[in-house]
Lab assay of single mutants.
Amino acid sequence: MQIFVKTLTGKTITLEVEPSDTIENVKAKIQDKEGIPPDQQRLIFAGKQLEDGRTLSDYNIQKDSTLHLVLR
Rank of each mutant, 00 (worst) to 15 (best):
residue 1 M to R: 03
residue 2 Q to K: 10
residue 2 Q to H: 07
residue 3 I to T: 01
residue 3 I to H: 00
residue 3 I to P: 00
residue 3 I to S: 00
residue 4 F to D: 10
residue 4 F to M: 07
residue 5 V to H: 00
residue 6 K to D: 08
residue 6 K to Q: 13
residue 6 K to S: 08
residue 6 K to A: 11
residue 7 T to H: 03
residue 7 T to R: 05
residue 8 L to F: 14
residue 9 T to R: 11
residue 9 T to D: 03
residue 10 G to M: 10
residue 10 G to V: 09
residue 10 G to N: 15
residue 11 K to R: 14
residue 12 T to P: 06
residue 12 T to V: 05
residue 12 T to G: 08
residue 12 T to N: 05
residue 13 I to F: 14
residue 13 I to Q: 09
residue 14 T to D: 06
residue 14 T to Y: 10
residue 14 T to N: 04
residue 16 E to T: 08
residue 16 E to K: 14
residue 17 V to W: 02
residue 17 V to K: 00
residue 17 V to D: 01
residue 18 E to I: 06
residue 18 E to F: 15
residue 20 S to K: 11
residue 20 S to R: 02
residue 21 D to P: 00
residue 22 T to Y: 11
residue 22 T to F: 12
residue 22 T to M: 08
residue 22 T to N: 08
residue 23 I to M: 08
residue 23 I to F: 15
residue 24 E to D: 05
residue 24 E to Q: 10
residue 24 E to M: 13
residue 24 E to H: 15
residue 25 N to Y: 11
residue 25 N to W: 07
residue 25 N to K: 08
residue 27 K to V: 07
residue 27 K to L: 13
residue 28 A to D: 08
residue 29 K to A: 15
residue 30 I to K: 00
residue 30 I to D: 00
residue 30 I to W: 01
residue 31 Q to K: 05
residue 32 D to M: 04
residue 32 D to L: 06
residue 32 D to K: 06
residue 33 K to P: 05
residue 33 K to T: 11
residue 34 E to V: 05
residue 35 G to I: 05
residue 35 G to L: 13
residue 36 I to P: 03
residue 37 P to N: 07
residue 38 P to W: 13
residue 38 P to H: 13
residue 39 D to S: 04
residue 39 D to K: 07
residue 40 Q to R: 15
residue 41 Q to A: 13
residue 41 Q to L: 07
residue 41 Q to W: 05
residue 43 L to D: 00
residue 43 L to F: 15
residue 43 L to R: 00
residue 44 I to H: 08
residue 45 F to G: 03
residue 46 A to F: 12
residue 46 A to Y: 13
residue 46 A to Q: 06
residue 47 G to L: 14
residue 47 G to K: 08
residue 47 G to W: 11
residue 48 K to P: 01
residue 48 K to T: 12
residue 49 Q to D: 09
residue 49 Q to Y: 14
residue 49 Q to I: 05
residue 51 E to L: 06
residue 52 D to Y: 14
residue 52 D to R: 03
residue 53 G to S: 07
residue 53 G to Q: 05
residue 53 G to A: 04
residue 54 R to P: 09
residue 55 T to K: 06
residue 55 T to F: 14
residue 55 T to D: 15
residue 56 L to D: 00
residue 56 L to Y: 01
residue 56 L to W: 01
residue 57 S to P: 06
residue 57 S to V: 06
residue 57 S to E: 15
residue 57 S to A: 14
residue 58 D to E: 03
residue 60 N to Y: 14
residue 60 N to H: 15
residue 61 I to A: 02
residue 62 Q to T: 12
residue 62 Q to W: 11
residue 63 K to A: 09
residue 63 K to T: 08
residue 63 K to H: 10
residue 64 D to G: 07
residue 64 D to N: 12
residue 65 S to H: 04
residue 65 S to D: 12
residue 66 T to Y: 03
residue 67 L to W: 02
residue 67 L to G: 01
residue 68 H to R: 02
residue 68 H to G: 08
residue 69 L to N: 01
residue 69 L to E: 01
residue 69 L to H: 01
residue 69 L to P: 00
residue 69 L to M: 09
residue 70 V to S: 07
residue 70 V to G: 04
residue 70 V to L: 09
residue 70 V to E: 03
residue 71 L to R: 11
residue 72 R to Y: 05
residue 72 R to W: 14
